[in-house]
Design a protein around this nucleic acid. Structure first.
Length: 510
RNA sequence: GGCCCAUUCGUCUAUCGGUUAGGACGCAAGAUUUUCAUUCUUGAAAGAGCAGUUCGAUUCUGCUAUGGGCUACCA
């Protein structure tokens, strides 16, 4: 029997979600949708020390912007609510005790300061301290202390933790959907803390396994940094007797820095001039970081780029809508090695999406920039202009520089264009062209082109010289689309006015 | 240090023992063009090294090297 696919994205609200986290969420989402399953958002806020105000809201907004929909979880609710671990704290102690009773875990009374000292001493001897089978009976634990002593310590409120009693010298055989079979000897592992009395909260490992079980998670898709703790998680499922319903695991390769070594970290963005976050972020202490959204990326482009970083469809298709990604996605086409994040490719994807936007879509996105420059036009006009120039733009914010001359007549003329074309016969010929244009009634692109080209050919004028002096008059610079795009947009009156302005205000060179 | 994972053009990647090792980004050249772009064409560019298995290894195995992750009462 195939069980229902239920996956979760389980971030910790310790700061803004970075793009590695977004990709993990995306792959979970694609997998869930591909299999007609559920996508769950669980907030793992079991570290009270590192909690950051606003991080959770940021995560939710990021997913929303990306088009990653949550079926169940924080913000939407569901049958396993609450989905915030801090609100589930009452659940975990019971399970931790269950493990102690079953002999899979024990109380430990040493303080973190004492452990720090032990670690230090071991280091001085050139050894590494590990809290495992070799030391647990020598330290103050429920394994070394008499039962009444243990009870007394707990009763009087001593600080304690519950640690997992890692078996000695056992091979744990695991399976990963991306990496295949992995084996580890438990003697190399240590006794992880599962629960701490100080804040009455579980650690990641316990909370994670308990919640995944309770929430009936079928597949755990997470970053590769979790692979080392997979044996612990396997053992926990065994200790609880939940092996039958244990989820399958898939560990995603990490996202690496564009240059140098290491995995992509939260500080890389502003240092290297590209965002590592989906959205603009302001920390409670006032630090800010760039975001893809505010930097002008389309969510579809951002998602498309991210999807292909570590996964490929096995075909040469590169542009994917979310639905196409859902249809094509499979875990066995996720690569095993880390992917270096490349800012240039992100830009390329954005340009591709820009080129495929309809005039209506562009109009809506372009209007704010127009208003900012005091241009009040209808969507039809805004869309038409944007549509003419979109091929040259990567971002919506490029559009204004590319199109301003449609709306504002040039006052000054670009030096280079002036020197090159505002000389010799050109001014006189532009004056002649003005009269030709003045005689045209139908100022449509096609008709104007037909008549003007006819006139140029008839007189055997050099096309480049004529057209560029016209460009100088209408655009003021050596840029822009075909001249008839400009004339038909401006209309006869404005076209003539701009020609007159050049003729009347700028003396020909030479 | 220990444990684990990985290793194809600069980057992202295809190849599921036999290929002129393919595509994309970026880069270069050329073409197109009324400008700037776009677009098109072409080019340079890769199997970490060494053994082994095999008729034959980029592909399988081992070792080495390199990269990365983990090694917290953080996730």
């Amino acid at each position: 029997m195939k069980r229902e696919v239920r996956v979760r994205f389980a971030p910790s609200p310790t700061g803004p979600l970075h793009i590695g986290g977004v990709r993990t969420a995306l792959y979970n989402y694609l997998f869930a949708r591909h299999h007609g399953g559920k996508m769950i958002l669980r907030i793992e806020d079991t570290d009270s020390q590192r909690f950051v105000e606003g991080a959770e809201a940021y995560i939710i907004e990021s997913l929303r912007w990306c088009g990653i929909e949550i079926d169940e979880g924080v913000g939407v609710g569901g049958p396993h609510a609450p989905y915030r671990q801090s609100e589930r704290r009452d659940i975990y102690l019971k399970y931790a005790k269950q493990l102690v009773d079953a002999g899979w875990a024990y109380y430990a009374f040493d303080t973190s300061a004492e452990l720090e000292a032990l670690r230090h001493k071991a280091e001085e001897r050139g050894e590494t301290f590990a809290y495992n089978y070799t030391v647990r009976t020598q330290l103050p634990t429920s394994l070394s202390l008499p039962k009444d002593e243990v009870d007394a310590r707990i009763a009087r409120g001593d600080v304690w933790v519950i640690r997992f009693k890692m078996p000695e010298n056992e091979i744990v055989k695991m399976h990963d959907l991306i990496r295949g079979d992995v084996e580890v000897n438990t003697s190399t592992l240590d006794d992880k803390v599962l629960y701490k009395s100080v804040d009455a909260l579980p650690t990641y490992h316990l909370a994670n396994i308990v919640d995944d079980h309770l929430m009936e998670i079928s597949h755990v898709i997470r970053g590769e940094e979790w692979l080392p703790s997979l044996p612990l998680h396997y053992l926990l499922y065994r200790a609880f007797g939940w092996e039958e319903s244990q989820p399958e695991f898939a560990h995603l390769p990490l996202l690496l820095k564009p240059t140098g070594g290491g995995k992509l970290s939260k500080r890389d963005g502003d240092k290297m001039g590209f965002p590592v976050f989906p959205l603009y972020w302001v920390s409670p202490t006032g630090e800010t970081a760039h975001g893809y959204r505010e930097d002008g990326y389309f969510p579809e482009a951002f998602i498309n780029m991210l999807a292909l970083l570590g996964w490929n469809p096995g075909t040469e298709q590169e542009i994917f809508s979310m639905q196409e990604l859902i249809d094509a996605f499979s875990l066995d086409r996720v690569s095993k090695s880390g992917a270096r994040f490349q800012p240039d490719k992100a830009k390329w994807f954005n340009a591709q999406y820009m080129h495929h936007k309809s005039d209506a879509e562009l109009a809506a996105l372009f209007q704010p920039a127009l208003k900012e420059h005091g241009i009040e036009v209808g969507d039809e006009v805004a869309g038409r202009v944007a549509g003419i120039m979109k091929e040259r733009a990567t971002f919506i914010s490029d559009l204004w520089n590319l199109t301003s001359y449609f709306f504002i007549a040039p006052i000054e003329y670009e030096e280079k264009q002036l020197k090159k074309y505002w000389k010799g016969e050109n001014p006189a010929r532009l004056a002649a062209l003005r009269e030709v244009l003045a005689g045209i009634d139908d100022f449509s692109l096609e008709n104007t082109e037909r008549i003007v080209h006819g006139w140029i050919e008839q007189h055997e004028y050099p096309m480049g010289q004529i057209m560029n002096s016209l460009r100088l008059a209408l655009v003021g610079a050596g840029k822009g689309p075909g001249m008839y795009d400009v004339t038909s947009f401006l209309g006869k009156e404005e076209t003539l006015r701009r020609i007159d302005h050049l003729l009347n205000t700028v003396k020909p060179l030479e």
